[in-house]
Design a binder for these strands. Structure first.
Length: 263
DNA sequence: ATGGCCAATATGATTGGA
């Protein structure tokens, strides 16, 4: 089973790219972020025509996450625990039934947090604490689970072309990386790093300053696997070529293959 | 030349992104 995550930076601006990439990569499940539209405005029909069930947690103008799945959804739940007053659409949890049993999938869009001297950074750190609490609870279930999305975290210096340029950025500050480590240290596996320790693995290149042309990228889109999912991991990759297409998102898809055939 | 973009919005300037 192939599962992918992609921050599309507006689903309505990215439908041509999304459909082309779905035909090329043939994922079974896709976690989307920054759809930037309401549930009503989400283009369900063309995706359903490609064989996907669709679950959406959107809002007007900003943020918004969604899930596509060739398997039907057994359960879908929007929102991250820990703050009932948080109205930003950044989290969508679902369960599908595979031949090996239930698989829990979360599509998440972690707050950017810039500038760091504002309440935006406090919101980011608090959101990360809530994600740690959520993950701690779900890991007790000891089932295959993956947290997939735009984490807005550069985990290490190896994950940036120019780490010094990000030294004071909310994506790379020590507190941010510390919280990300605390999350991973609950027992999650960073899928890309489980199969590849190269230094030039990026998932985002800014639209500005010729970042793509200079390969000035960062790795901030991640798939974190529970032990029961990590045991089934057979491959992981980044579709960086999609960044070179016409009308690209500034992020590219990241995917994993899990052996859930239930032998 | 050390800067250069993109998307949404009762839109033509502002906000957010990273």
């Amino acid at each position: 089973m192939r599962i992918a995550t992609w921050n599309v930076n507006s689903i309505r601006q990215r439908m041509d790219n999304l459909e082309a990439w779905l035909r090329e990569r043939q994922p079974d499940i896709v976690c989307l972020q920054e759809i930037k539209c309401t549930d009503e405005a989400f283009p369900r029909e063309p995706l359903e025509a490609l064989g996907y069930n669709v679950a959406v947690h959107g809002q007007k103008t900003f943020n918004g996450v969604a899930l596509l799945s060739k398997l039907p959804f057994d359960e879908v739940a929007p929102g991250l625990i820990g703050d009932d007053a948080d109205v930003q659409a950044r989290f969508l949890e679902a369960i599908v039934s595979t031949k090996s049993g239930a698989l829990r999938v979360i599509s998440l869009y972690l707050p950017n947090g810039n500038p760091p001297d504002t309440d935006k950074y406090a919101y980011k750190l608090n959101w990360m604490s809530r994600l740690i609490n959520f993950s701690h609870e779900r890991l007790k279930l000891e089932e295959p689970m993956l947290l997939a999305g735009d984490f807005n975290v550069i985990p290490t210096t190896t994950d940036a072309s120019r780490p010094e340029a990000w030294k004071n950025d909310a994506l790379f500050l020590p507190q941010t990386r510390e919280k990300f480590r605390a999350l991973v240290n609950l027992g999650l596996t960073d899928a890309i790093r489980a199969v590849n320790d190269e230094s030039d693995l990026y998932t985002f290149w800014d639209y500005q300053a010729g970042a793509w042309a200079k390969d000035d990228g960062i790795r901030i889109d991640h798939l974190l696997l529970s032990p029961q999912a990590a045991d089934r991991l057979t491959d992981a990759g980044i579709d960086r070529h999609v960044r070179g297409w016409d009308k690209p998102s500034d992020h590219v898809p990241v995917y994993i293959d899990l052996d859930l055939d239930g032998r």
